[in-house]
Design a binder for these strands. Structure first.
Lengths: 134, 134
DNA sequence: AACAAGCTTTACGTTAACGTAAACTTCCCT
DNA sequence: AGGGAAGTTTACGTTAACGTAAAGCTTGTT
């Protein structure tokens, strides 16, 4: 049997934890990315919601739009019985992977360039700061 | 002496090469990221402009805003004589590096997850497509 | 000369992802 | 009972990064 942790969160909890506003969290719900249950009017978030929030924020750091992240959620939740469904899924996955690999390359290049710049700065700084030693 | 390649481009050239609209290129200029010279009314782009365009697009793939990319350009072009200037530069560089390293981690995690998902798809696909072989 | 292709400026429109304000309920505290 | 803290809905505002006309130059081609 599943040990379904009965851990829940309020919207304020999550907002504080992830350092975002409650407005954002409600907006993500509005866009269909999260579906907290209600206790009367009040939203109650569970582990799954929390994980999704984390994924949304990771997506944002990678420049994903909310709808892109939504598509990824659909992939994970999708009906995995139809063969054609599975195939289109694999196409989408391949596409995302290609994007990410491109980003990986971009980042590596940029990090190299920043390192070069940094080193150049350090050198001229060293040359400027200690001219007395000559 | 520098062999300054006298290679130039029209706005249409660059738009085609990078698969963007001329509108975008003019917009980047408007934001101060490129400064082509003029032949009468017409914009003439040189190698430096082209490189900048490439950097802008790489920045976009990494989720950088245009003003962030602009800041990076400033860093590269900055006056590298003042010590305090150099130090604030190094702070900014360190910040960017931290961001990029975070992105690097995010990407690696996401790629792993996508690979898992892909593999799971392949397995169920294989199980569904070839049930005759039993 | 006329016309198309490619360039220009000006300017209003659009989308995503929230920010912000107003007005209301619910619960807890003293 | 009165207030404050945290939650709610509704709705208009905002910013970035262009899209999309509209109207006009310029240059080569027919």
């Amino acid at each position: 049997m599943k040990t379904t942790n009965q851990v829940t969160y309020s919207i304020g909890n999550l907002a504080k934890e992830f350092d975002i506003t409650t407005r954002s969290i409600r907006f993500y719900e509005d866009q269909g990315l999260i579906s907290p249950v209600r206790n009367g009017q009040t939203r109650i978030y569970n582990q799954r919601d929390r994980v999704r929030l984390k994924l949304i924020l990771r997506g944002k750091r990678l420049g994903f739009s909310l709808s892109e992240t939504g598509r990824l959620f659909e992939l994970y939740d999708a009906d995995r019985t139809s063969a054609t469904q599975l195939e289109t899924m694999m196409v989408l996955i391949a596409q995302k992977k290609a994007d990410l690999n491109q980003q990986l390359d971009d980042i590596k290049i940029m990090l190299m360039e920043l390192n070069n710049l940094e080193q150049s700065c350090q050198e001229t700084l060293a040359a400027v700061e200690q001219p007395k030693k000559n």
